[in-house]
Design a protein around this nucleic acid. Structure first.
Length: 297
DNA sequence: ACGAATCCTGGGCA
DNA sequence: ATGCCCAGGATTC
């Protein structure tokens, strides 16, 4: 009999919608009943909230609470973070109120890096669609859930062996395919290297990632924050840049996002928010994302 | 060090 | 219909 897992945790400590809406991961979808379905560690995971409980299932197999705790970083206490953020930045109180329960995920490093290579000058909607095509084409079938087949994200070894011109015609990633193939080759040449960055300092891990051709600061910082346990990593994209110049660093308004400006923005927020600056980044990110959506409707 | 052009592609908009 | 601009970047000159 297929079983369902239970985890008692308040909505203040985790809000699935805020956490799984695209921005960190590109693989989660909501089904007709509002349950979130995604692929994590080679399993299909279905998860939703009922009152004060999180409920979850795995396909195939049994629900694994330790996997949920690990993936959603339930060891991190949001209430403590909130009081710290609000203390150093009064404006954060309102932002936190809006996005209470948003968490940074702990994703698989290889998948995270390869996905973010696809994100260069691309929109979330198209990244998600390309990632799905790649998985279907080069990944492995995991399970069929409610008449839908789910595939694992392809391994670096697999993508390394795919001709990038050939890939181009399939996934509509264009020039990013050559990068994807190149990074995949670099990773499969050094098995275990990427995961080993988890054990290194933020500075060293960042340096390591930036040595990969095709990985700049933005992508490096995303991979550090979303998969390599570097909570101070602070990716600066156009959303963050907007927020930064609007509320915190008006003097950068006219400046283009050069390498130096990028580092100054990162430095400002790391100094302000401290070792969990990356978590604050997600809140600021969503603030701008939603305000843009409101404006365009 | 900075700014600009280039890399695919689909959607929005004049 | 057609052309231009841009989208959660990185590299090169």
């Amino acid at each position: 009999m297929h079983s369902i897992g239970n985890l008692e945790i308040s909505p203040n400590e985790i809000d699935l919608t805020h956490t799984l809406t695209p921005g960190q991961s590109f693989r989660w979808k909501q089904d007709a009943r509002g349950r979130w379905v995604g692929v994590v560690h080679g399993r299909v995971l279905r998860i939703w909230r009922e009152g004060n409980k999180i409920r979850f299932e795995a396909f195939p197999g049994d629900p694994d609470e330790s996997l949920i705790r690990d993936y959603f970083r339930l060891d991190v206490n949001l209430a403590a973070l909130y009081s710290q953020f609000a203390q150093v930045d009064p404006r954060m109180s309102g932002v936190i109120q809006r996005f209470k329960g948003l968490r940074v995920l702990r994703q698989e490093p290889e998948e995270t890096l390869l996905s973010y290579i696809c994100s260069a000058a691309n929109s979330v909607k198209r990244i998600s669609s390309s990632v799905e095509i790649l998985s279907k084409k080069y990944g492995e079938l995991i399970a069929e859930v409610e008449n839908e087949e789910y595939y694992s994200f392809p391994t670096a070894a697999t993508l390394a062996a795919v001709d990038s011109e050939c890939m181009k015609g399939i996934c509509s990633l264009g020039f990013r395919c050559a990068n994807l193939n190149s990074i995949a080759r670099q990773l499969s040449d050094r098995p275990g290297w990427l995961n080993s960055l988890r054990g290194m300092s933020y500075e060293d891990a960042r340096k390591g990632l930036l040595e990969l051709r095709g990985v700049g600061k933005k992508i490096a910082d995303c991979v550090l924050l979303f998969s390599l346990d570097k909570d101070q990593a602070f990716p600066v994209d156009t959303h963050i840049r907007q927020i930064a110049t609007r509320y915190y660093l008006p003097e950068f308004e006219q400046k283009s996002l050069t390498s130096a400006v990028y580092e100054q923005i990162v430095g400002h927020f790391q100094e302000k928010f401290g070792e969990y600056a990356g978590w604050a980044q997600e809140y600021l990110f969503y603030e701008d994302l939603l305000s843009r959506e409101e404006r365009s409707h």
